[in-house]
Design a protein around this nucleic acid. Structure first.
Lengths: 245, 245
DNA sequence: CGGTTGCTTGAGATCCATCAATAGGAGTGG
DNA sequence: CCACTCCTATTGATGGATCTCAAGCAACCG
C-alpha cells in the first residue's frame, strides 16, 4: 500500500476508486542515492513524491550555512499539487537513499478533475504541510533547543504514524546530528548535548537510527506539541467535495 | 485599483475580464480596529483578503511567548484560495486598523472556474507566499539579528512595491519594535539595538513609521536577500492556464 | 495633567556557537 | 584479521550573541 494513499486517507473519505487514482500516480518509481534530487535554480517539470526514505527541502546560504526548510517523509509531495514554480528557489535533497516518483503535472491535474474527494485530500495535504511549516517557524523563533528537538521528534512520530511506520512508539530517524542541526537552526554540538538531556530525563531513547518515545504525553507537554495539527480536514471549495458535515 | 489585482498581475497575464473577476471578489469591504480577526480555534467560513493596513498570522504559546508566522499586506489572502481548514491552528490579527473582505469560498471557486488565468495567478500567489515562508524560516534558523531585520525590510520593500505602496525607496512600516521582535524571533530590546546598527551604518532610516532604504543593493547583500523570490510565475497544471511559453 | 504605550539605554545572566580534541563504527584493502 | 580511513558522535573549554531585568524618556490622549 502506497504511503501516499495511506496518508491521504486521513484527509478525506476516499473510495476504492479514489485510492486507485492516487495509487496510479505513484509509479513508475525510481531509486536514488543520498544527494540532490532537484538543485536550486532548476526548472522543475514534475512533482516529486517520496515513497521510501527521507528527503528534505533546503537552502544553502552564501556564508556556508544551510537551513533545512522541511522534511519529506514517505507519502509526501515535494511541491504543491496545483502548480510548479518556474524556477526552484530552494533545493530538494535525499537525506537517505530514497524511492520516489516524478509525477507529471497533467497526471495530477487529471486526478483532481476525476474526483472531488481526491481534490479534497490533496488540499488537506497542502493545508497540513503549511501547518507543519508554521510550527517549524515557531520552533525556530520561540523554542529552546531541547524544546525544538522534542517538538520535532513528536512531529515525526505523528507523521510516520499516519503512514504506518511506527511500532510501539518506536520509529527510524535516519538523520545525522548535523542534519538535525540544520533543520532546527542549531549547531551539531548543541544538538548532541540537547539529545543527551532528553535521554537523561528518560523521555526518549535514540541509538543508532532508532527512536523510542517512552512517554509521548510528557514529551508533548515539554515541547508544546499539539497533535491536532494534522487533524483539521481541508474543506475544499466545491460543496460536493467535502466530507459529510 | 484593488491591491489584490495589482499584485496578481505579477503572477499571470490577466485580461480585463480577469481583473474584473478579481475585483469582484474584493467587496464588500469592512473596517476593523487592531486586534484579532480570526482567533485560534475558530472554524473559518470565509477567506480573508486584506485591502488596507497590516495584519498577521501568529501563534500564542503557553509560556506567554508569541510568534508571528507571516505578515499580511494589502492584497494578501489570509488562507489558501482552494481550501479552508476545519479549525484554525493559528490566529489572524490586525496589526493596524485594516480594511478587509471576507471572501466566501464559493466565490473564489467560481472565479477559479471562470478563468484559467485567474487560477494561474492564484497559484502563483500561493507559491510566492510559500517562498516567503521559507525565507522567513531561513532567517530564524541561520541569520543574525541584523541580517533578519535587513532581510525583512528588503522583503517588505519588495512586496509593497508590487502593490504600488513604495515611493522613492520609502514606505510605511507600522510595526512596533515588539511586533518586529515577535516576527523575527528576537527580544524587543535587541530589535532596538539592531535597528540602531542599521541606522548607524547609513543603510536605512526608520523614524516614526516611515522607512527609507538608502542603499537597497547594499542592504540586500548584507542580509542575503534575493529579489527573485517573487518572480517565478506559477505554472498551473492545466496546459492552457500558463502564460505563453 | 496623569496614564498608557512605545522607544532607548545600561548591566548582568544565559543559551548556544565555535574551536579543538578524542573516541566509536562501518567500510575497504591488504 | 589487521591497519587505515572516513564519518559521526561525544566531550571540554571559551567566547559571543542575545535575553532579561530595570530604569528613564518621549509622545500621545482623554
Amino acid at each position: 500500500m502506497s504511503p501516499f494513499v495511506r496518508k491521504l486517507r486521513h484527509g478525506a473519505r476516499l473510495g476504492e476508486d479514489d485510492e486507485a487514482i492516487l495509487a496510479g500516480l505513484a509509479e513508475p518509481a525510481r531509486r536514488l542515492d543520498r544527494g540532490d534530487i532537484v538543485p536550486e535554480g532548476a526548472e522543475p517539470r514534475s512533482v516529486i513524491l517520496v515513497l521510501e526514505g527521507w528527503a528534505c527541502r533546503y537552502k544553502q546560504l552564501e556564508n556556508g550555512k544551510r537551513q533545512i526548510t522541511s522534511v519529506l517523509l514517505p507519502g509526501d509531495l515535494g511541491e504543491p499539487f496545483g502548480a510548479l514554480p518556474r524556477v526552484m528557489d530552494h533545493a530538494v535533497g535525499a537525506l537517505t537513499p530514497v524511492l520516489l516518483v516524478r509525477v507529471p503535472p497533467h497526471a495530477l491535474h487529471r486526478a483532481v478533475r476525476a474526483s472531488p474527494r481526491v481534490e479534497a485530500a490533496l488540499w488537506w495535504d497542502l493545508l497540513a504541510a503549511q501547518a507543519l511549516q508554521r510550527e517549524h517557524l515557531v520552533s525556530l523563533g520561540r523554542r529552546s533547543a531541547v524544546e525544538r528537538l522534542g517538538h520535532f521528534l513528536c512531529e515525526v512520530h505523528l507523521r510516520l504514524g499516519l503512514v504506518g511506520l511506527v511500532e510501539q512508539s518506536s520509529c527510524d530517524i535516519p538523520l545525522t546530528q548535523g542534519d538535525l542541526a540544520d533543520l532546527l537552526g542549531l549547531s551539531a554540538v548543541y544538538v548532541n548535548r540537547s539529545l543527551q538531556e532528553l535521554r537523561g530525563s528518560g523521555l526518549i531513547s535514540l541509538r543508532g537510527r532508532r527512536l523510542t518515545l517512552h512517554d509521548v504525553q510528557a514529551l508533548r507537554e515539554l515541547s508544546m506539541f499539539s497533535p491536532d495539527l494534522l487533524l483539521p480536514q481541508g474543506v475544499t471549495l466545491a460543496p460536493a467535495a467535502t466530507a459529510p458535515a
